[in-house]
């Protein structure tokens, strides 16, 4: 599975509508991403000689972007703990107040913003979201992070990358690259929010 999306593959006609990832697929993808995060934390650990024993994981903060990035971040943290025995800090950052499309799409209810007690200053922050599309949510999240502290490094983990970027943003960890057409919708359902784990591709007709 390619680390970064190939632009040629993410152009229409896209994928056939239907279930892209089943519940078992989601679990497997999350496990793989957790392993990748463990490796990355080890390779990016601070070179001040501290915290070598935990492989840099004490330095890692997973920040989920609500709605579905938040439970995804908690799951990744749970899997990392299962694999390594180290509990990783998790937070959520609501980006609604940082969005640039409020005028176009109207205001909406806010979701919680919760950071670990130690904050994010000087740490390795990995933003977690369900779908990477235009990149505008990530831009808003980067703006929000700038107001919340000054991480040593910020990386991005997404369950699905569906292409069609409108900004120069790419993900560092991708669960699955999915070629789509703009007319399609990618719906990620997670048990915590939707009662079931699955990723669906649908033709946009619901809205």
């Amino acid at each position: 599975m390619a680390r970064s999306p190939d632009p040629a593959r993410s152009t229409p006609p896209g994928s056939a509508p239907g279930t892209l990832l089943s519940s078992a697929d989601v679990a497997r993808v999350v496990d793989r991403m957790a392993h990748q995060l463990i490796e990355r934390a080890a390779s990016l650990r601070p070179d001040d000689g501290s915290d070598q024993a935990d492989g840099g994981l004490a330095d890692l903060v997973l920040v989920g972007i609500p709605t579905r990035g938040a439970p995804l971040a908690r799951r990744l943290a749970a899997r990392i703990e299962a694999f390594t025995g180290v509990a990783v800090d998790v937070g959520t950052a609501d980006i609604t107040l940082y969005r640039d499309d409020l005028r176009l799409r109207g205001v909406r209810a806010l979701e919680p913003t919760v950071l670990p007690d130690d904050g994010i200053d000087g740490r390795l922050v990995v933003l977690v979201d369900d779908v990477l599309f235009s990149g505008r949510s990530v831009r808003a999240a980067l703006d929000a992070l700038r107001d919340l502290g000054r991480p040593r490094s910020v990386q991005l983990a997404v369950l699905v990358d569906r292409g069609h970027r409108e900004l120069p943003i790419r993900a560092d960890f991708v669960g699955k690259n999915v070629p789509t057409s703009r007319a399609q919708q990618v719906r990620v359902h997670l048990a915590e929010v939707d009662g079931v784990d699955e990723v669906l591709v649908t033709e946009r007709d619901a809205e």
Partner: peptide
């Protein structure tokens, strides 16, 4: 609810 989220944020 919005005020509470802003407060928390």
């Amino acid at each position: 609810d919005t005020a509470a989220q802003i407060d928390q944020a």
